[in-house]
Amino acid sequence: MGQFLDGKNLADERAAILKTQVSELKSQGIVPLFCVINIGDDPSSKLYIKTKKRRADEIGIVQKVYQLPKTQSQQSLLTLIDRLNQDKKVYGIMIQLPVPPQINLNEALEHIDPEKDVDCLTPSNVGRLWRGDHYVEPATAHGVLALLDHYQIKLHGKKVVIIGRSSIVGKPLAALMLERDATVSILHSKTKQLAEYTKNADILVSAVGHANLVTPEMVKENAVVIDVGINRVNNQTVGDVNTVLVKPKVSFITPVPGGIGPLTVESLMEQVVKLTRRKNGR
């Protein structure tokens, strides 16, 4: 029977440490502040922002939300980003996804100062990530590695399969795992016969948002399974993995909820503090 990888408790432990660091910064007159730009009224986005705000308040980080209408123009968005770039009190900027169709997301991300890019999505920071000299990491990918480290699950020499090639999870996670000498395969919607790849994985990560996608026959005996997916089924939150059936076959598995989700929020706060310290030479 597999062991659950408890992301919630780990997130709380790391938050306590981060709170001490933030207190030290504040004692020196430095207040970690990051800005979230939310365009439109997507319910899941607003819920995520509230979750981030709650954690930020607990730690002592200031989160400022710019709630913009769904009709927001591209130019006015760029003007806001430019203003935040110039504001010396702001240490982090992020655009809450998704954005309305009239917004050119790539252009908006390019406008964010890389030194304030808390999501690690600007072109220069993405390049640094793949080059291996990054100073900020995407929150979810950072959270996955933090969880593996906590349970002393090594990546060196392991076969890793990631289902999902998003710029937020799949691609950056692959880069960070390659950095630790894992052999990484990325699968996606056009990959044929997923099981031919997944059943050979020492570590399997699913991040596509497809409930019960991963079943026992797709998983290697004693593998480690990381479920990043979040789906709503019959008013319940479930992941991409059929946990009930897969858990008896693996060595470790993340629950949903309570696995990667809490660590994503905590890791975002850690990136804010990293950027704050970097800007102040700490």
Rank of each mutant, 00 (worst) to 15 (best):
K50I: 01
A56G: 03
D41K: 05
I30Y: 00
Q3M: 14
L80R: 02
Q63C: 06
P43V: 02
L25E: 06
K52G: 00
S23Y: 01
F4Y: 14
I61A: 04
K88V: 14
Q75D: 14
D57M: 13
P43G: 00
L80E: 03
M94A: 06
T51N: 15
L84S: 03
V31D: 14
I30G: 03
M1P: 08
I93Q: 08
T51P: 08
S76N: 10
Q63D: 07
L68V: 01
R54T: 14
G2M: 14
G29S: 09
K70M: 13
R83W: 09
A11R: 00
A16D: 13
D42A: 05
I17L: 15
I59K: 05
L5R: 06
R54N: 15
Q21C: 08
L77W: 01
R83Y: 11
L78A: 02
P43T: 01
V36Q: 08
A11S: 09
K19Q: 08
V90R: 02
A11K: 03
T71V: 12
K46T: 04
R14V: 11
Q21M: 07
L97P: 02
S44N: 08
S44W: 06
D12Q: 15
A56W: 04
K46M: 11
L80C: 01
K50G: 00
S76Q: 12
T51C: 13
L18K: 00
Y66W: 10
Q3W: 08
K26P: 01
G2K: 12
M1T: 10
V36L: 13
F4M: 15
I59N: 02
N9P: 03
P32A: 09
K89F: 13
T51K: 15
I39W: 03
K19I: 02
D57G: 08
R54P: 09
T51L: 15
V36W: 04
I37Y: 02
A11C: 06
Q63F: 04
R55L: 15
D42C: 06
L18R: 00
E24L: 10
Q96M: 05
N38K: 12
E13I: 11
K8N: 12
S76K: 09
T51S: 15
A16H: 08
Q21H: 09
M94R: 05
R54W: 09
I39N: 03
L77R: 02
Q3G: 04
Q67R: 08
V65C: 06
S23H: 05
Q72K: 07
T79N: 11
